[in-house]
Design a protein around this nucleic acid. Sequence first.
DNA 1: GTGAAAGCGCTAACAC
DNA 2: GTGTTAGCGCTTTCAC
Lengths: 338, 338
Amino acid sequence: MKVTISDVAKMAGVSTATVSHTINNTRYVSSETKDKVYQAISELGYTPDASARSFRTGKKKTIGFIVPDISNKFFATMIESVETYLSQQGYHLIIANTKENEEREEVNIRLLSAGLVDGLLIASTMDSAEKFESLIPAGFPVVLVDRTFDSKNFSSLCVSNFQPIYRSVCRLAGKGDHKIGIIGGLPRLSTTKERISAYQQAVTDCGLTVDDNLIRYGNSLENSAADCLDDLLDQHCDAIIATNGLMASDTIMYLHKKGLQLAKDIDLVCFVDFNSSFFQMYSNQIDSIVQPVEELGAAAGEQILKRVEDPEAPIFEKVLTSAYRPYNLPNSWNHSDR
Amino acid sequence: MKVTISDVAKMAGVSTATVSHTINNTRYVSSETKDKVYQAISELGYTPDASARSFRTGKKKTIGFIVPDISNKFFATMIESVETYLSQQGYHLIIANTKENEEREEVNIRLLSAGLVDGLLIASTMDSAEKFESLIPAGFPVVLVDRTFDSKNFSSLCVSNFQPIYRSVCRLAGKGDHKIGIIGGLPRLSTTKERISAYQQAVTDCGLTVDDNLIRYGNSLENSAADCLDDLLDQHCDAIIATNGLMASDTIMYLHKKGLQLAKDIDLVCFVDFNSSFFQMYSNQIDSIVQPVEELGAAAGEQILKRVEDPEAPIFEKVLTSAYRPYNLPNSWNHSDR
DNA sequence: GTGAAAGCGCTAACAC
DNA sequence: GTGTTAGCGCTTTCAC
């Protein structure tokens, strides 16, 4: 049967307290006693039971990460860097995948916050901040990642979307493009809103006319760009901006299928997943916007652990900056400020 | 402070047993009593503590999945389908990412099997079956996924690698290719071994000569194919087989960079991640092998829950079949038998 | 330098 | 139809 701490204590001829203190280094134990304890442990093959431990201490040493789409390389890479950071700190990672579905997110928040994890990292797909907030138990450690809400009630780690989009529009306009279409993600997401508004401002500032028909929305998941593209191509766009990696690769594929040549028949600006062979192949034909995913993941890991240790810590917000790289400037990865 | 089951009991004027039975539907409770209980629960905002519960029952309602590489689309998709299945059954998924590192796998097996999860799904990167087995506590529910060991001591879900590779070699030989190179993953993996041996047998059977220089090994991670390709191109291969999606996309990119035209200058057979735009673009220039990832993930979820419920269940092995699709037969996705 | 024992929140015999 | 209560395995206070 299961071997417990008292089996070890009995065998070593000491108390359970001593065994506990020995394995946790939590008070002085003479080295002879230690030896006896470790001896007994290895003889019995004892492993402390994690759930008893976390029940007793209230610490699960586990963080939950609620993601909209694991199979999106952006999030996959982020998960990877979060996991790397957390495991170095002795924490585990529980993944929940919402597929951009608000109910799934709701269910997962409830489930995970009910004593399963010490804290939650969330790239939320929710529309309403109020709804979201009502789901989080008071004082429960939460850090928003990539996507945030206007009401700044939670710590957050995001990527600045404004500057790279703004710059890319200016550059396209400078090249003489007049009709610049944009494919956004789900309209309710903060990232989408920021990107679209950067686009609108830049279009205005560059002296072009804002035409809402040039703004199309995908669903942030795979294979959602085609309809948007049909619309945009019908309107004879000179350029298209695809605002996430998944929709960007769909776009490249679609244009390819239509026989349109990038940078010649049509200009393309893409949010690009760094390290993905797909985009590397096109780096000399499209303007790329690369988000600092790994940095984001590591910072998210760091922040959530800070909050777990001190749930009353002041709200922390950080906005990382994306790199913008127009294709005819191959050697300068412009790090845009803010 | 934290509201517990006895707060609820007190407020509802019943015993904790009744509260417990009410929320778990585990014995008859009159509807008036139920009402009082639910009333108290919502008034107090009570949520049962998951760790107390799992400590008490011994069930964590959580499965661990040890993966070699989250950011590989093959595994990302698999995680997604495992998670979908498990969450439908009321289970959670803990992810551990080994980056094809044996020590990281070892650490994670230890950590997760020590009372954190009810069972473990493992796509192992280990070389030695003995080593692996020694890490698994006796009777602990484990299902091997994608990769297996010769000693059949665990249930496993794999994909048949032999037939599609064999067929693709035959087809290349039939087209007149003489020098067929192959890029395998890590040599220690069962999948790599199977694929290489299928290659060797087919080469022999087709009357070509087996040349070990034509067999190169990557590390199963991203950006590991370049060196292999240099070697292979130096030897003037007519065709190359890339045995996982990551190395396949590296290969396409690399050949592209070298200015070689697929299907013209060189034939290419690739393990391909279904649904990935990248490969869809090349589907008329390369022979594709598509593994049934989603099916694999769902089956893995099913099997591990079976084992969790009955750890003494007989060992289960299933080999799913990949689809092989030569590029000039665009409408027939050949489902290879075995 | 070590031990005794309380008790974390819940479930499930057992009792009536 | 419901209540009483032991106890899961561990950590930690208090005591010596």
